[in-house]
Structure formats: structure tokens, C-alpha cells
Amino acid sequence: MESAKHLKRTRSDVVYDAVIFVILTIIFLLVAYPLYFVIISSFSDPVAVAGGKVVLYPVGFTLDGYNEVFKAKTVMRGFFNSLLYTAVGVSINLAVTLPTSYALSRKDFPLNKPITLFYIVTMFVGGGMMPTYLVVRDTGLLNTMWALVLPGALGVYNMIVGRTFFTTNIPSELMEAAKLDGCGNTKFFFHIVLPLSGAITAILFLYYGVGHWNSYFSALLYVSDRTKWPLQMELRNILLQNSVNMSKTVMTEEQLAEKERLEALKEMMKYSLIIISSIPVLIIYPFVQKHFVKGVMIGSVKG
């Protein structure tokens, strides 16, 4: 359409452009406002939030909500558990996925087709919740971090994204040249392929990382020991099941207004909690948005 620009725009085109502009602006506001509202509410006086006074900017700026979150031991424990699980999980994911992707990208590897099929099958056929649970239990993973990181060590979709990347970015001539110089596959992978794999490592790191950070299903199934809960399980308790342990307790002789304020603070703490739980993703999002999108495009190419 770039080169079509010099052609004259008709009146209906001008109308069309205006309509598109307005609709997209509405969509933009619909998506952005709730996110913005969470942010300003987390900094506002809880009573103002509950009273609907917070609309465009924080009212009665305060950090009380954040204070409450930092005082909640369970939340902090969950936060650090999640950091650990994500770090260990992503390391395992990359260590398993990258070599597999590379091996399967090699056309001259005779087991290429059968192994690819082995993985594709798992996308459509599975054992389901309980049979998987029994295997996790019988391998002794229940109530350990490993239950959250081992069973999903290789995501098939991610593996295919990686394979497509290697097929298109590592020319087979390079391998042949290296072979003539007496360089084997292993050496070639570690000394030549990996240094060229920055982009795909970033993409997989993010896909797997966000997955680990955000998931609660595995923990719900496999981890009943609360000291080992990831952050999402603690969030579930507070945000969805409404069981907040406040650091302050209301005395019977305290005034109604104070009681109400604490009630509101309890709600407000949730906004702060949402922000804090999103911090790791928020920090990396602006830097990596283009990588995320690139990953979708690589994945959509038929492998």
C-alpha cells in the first residue's frame, strides 16, 4: 500500500480512514483504561477508590497498599518461590529445547522424522489429568519444585519455533564446511550454532518464562505444601477466595470509620498486589515485545 499513497484519496477513503481511526481509538481506550485504573488505584486512598473518586489520577496518594503487601509474609514467600521456579524452569527448558530443536532442524539426521512425529503426537493425544498426576506422584515429584518444571521441560510448540529458526538461520553449507575441518556436531553446536542463537534464545526464554511465572494449574495439582506455593497460588487465595490476613486487626472499640477504612484497604491491597505480581513481566515487556511477535511469526511458518 506504500506506493499507492501518491494516488488521490477519494472522499469515501477519507471517511473510511476516519471511521477506522475512531474505532481503533475506542479499542485502545477499552484495553488501556482498566490497566491504568489498576495502577492509579494502587496509589490512591482506599476510601476514595471504593467511593468511585479515582478516575484519571491517584486521589490521596499513599503507599499503604504496597506496605500491606510487603508485610504479608506468604506473598513475599510466594514471590521468591516463583522467581526460583521460573529461573530453574527456564534453564531446564532451554537446555532441553535448544539441542532438540537443532538436531531436528538437520535434514541429514536420519531420526529427524520419527522424533518429530513423536512430539507432534503429544500435541493431539494425552493421558489427561489423573494418569499424569499418578505418574508425577509415582516418580516422587509431588510437593517438590520438580513437579512444576520437569513434566513440561519441552514445549512442542516452542521446539517447533526453535527448529524453524535453525532451519532458516543456520545454512547447511556452514555445517559442511565445519565438517571438512574436522568439527563434529557437538562442537559445531556449542561453538557456532549457540553464539548465533541470541534471538531464538530470547524468544524461548520469554515464552517459557512468562509461562512459569503465570501458571497456577500445576501447583494446584501437585503442590499442597503451602511453604512451596508459587506466587500465583497465593494470589489466588487473596484475589479469588478473599482470604486476606491483614497485619492490623480491628479492635471492637474502634470506630466504624476505621473499620471501613481497613475494609477498603483490604480491597486496595489487591490493586497493589496485582502490580507487584506483574513487575517481572512489566520490566521486560517493553524490551522484548518485538521478540514476542517475532516468535509468533516464526511459529506460523509451516515447518
Binding site: A95, V96, T97, P99, T100, Y102, A103, L104, L111, I115, F118, Y119, T122, V125, G126, G127, G128, P131, T132, L134, V135, V136, T139, L150, P151, G152, A153, L154, M159, N185, F189
Partner: peptide, 17 residues
């Protein structure tokens, strides 16, 4: 290169099937 993935997928995906 493929072995770790195959072992894990066999244990946690094929055995449950």
C-alpha cells in the same frame, strides 16, 4: 541432543497415555 527431551516426554506424556 534429543535424548533428555525424549526421556522426559516418554515418562510424563506417553506413560500417562
Amino acid at each position: 541432543f534429543c535424548l533428555p527431551g525424549i526421556v522426559i516426554t516418554t515418562i510424563y506424556h506417553y506413560i500417562p497415555i
